[in-house]
């Protein structure tokens, strides 16, 4: 197994700041906007974006939720590996709000498809956008594209993109892993 660094801590820092600015451009004070991290890996990025928007860009309050999509996946009983569910925590009303989904890697688009179905259980949002740190283009199974992306990557199918966060893995780095 070999791996190479796709993004260093500094690059991630710059990208997150750019993404924060792009979000502010479209959502100004976030009064009508909520952000939702997709479990399990999207919540780290979502939490980072929230802290950045509040601490660096003076946004007063950001509503942040976590959405687990395990029970909405389209590969139940079709996949060899059985996935364990994570916590869903959405303590606000989604009805008529602008929702920004946040996930670390956009690959086939099936997770986001499941997330869109799951979100319906919480009401009808005005619109839904997608922010991801890594966009693996050319590998989509569904017509789903990000509205905000950190870096586009062309990776082949037996490669894996691994996003590490200081609070979880001890470092901010994105690797391209080849098995």
């Amino acid at each position: 197994m070999s791996q190479k660094v796709l993004l260093t801590a500094t690059e991630i820092h710059i990208i997150l700041n750019r993404l924060a600015c792009q979000l502010i451009e479209n959502h100004t004070d976030f009064k009508e906007t909520v952000i939702i991290g997709i479990q399990p890996r999207g919540v780290f990025l979502a939490e980072r974006m929230k802290q950045l928007l509040i601490n660096e860009y003076g946004i007063e309050d950001i509503k942040l939720g976590r959405l687990d999509i395990t029970f909405y996946r389209d590969d139940f009983r079709r996949s060899e590996k059985i996935l364990a569910a994570n916590t869903t925590q959405i303590d606000f009303v989604v009805e008529n709000k602008k929702v920004v989904f946040i996930d670390d890697v956009l690959y086939t688009g099936r997770s986001i498809n499941a997330a869109l179905t799951a979100l319906q259980s919480f009401g009808r949002p005005q619109e839904v956008e997608l922010l991801c740190l890594i966009d693996r283009r050319f590998s989509r199974h569904l017509p789903i594209q990000p509205d905000y992306k950190g870096r586009q990557v062309d990776a082949i199918n037996d490669q894996k993109v691994k996003v590490c966060w200081t609070e979880n893995e001890g470092e901010d780095t994105v690797y391209l892993v080849k098995s």
Binding site: Y72, A85, F122
Partner: peptide
């Protein structure tokens, strides 16, 4: 029990249904 914790959250949502067992 761990799985039931998640379903307990599901059945307290406005829409109390998940599509897992549709087939």
């Amino acid at each position: 029990f761990k799985t039931a914790d998640h379903f307990k959250e599901v059945i307290n949502r406005p829409i109390k249904k998940v599509p897992s067992l549709r087939d």
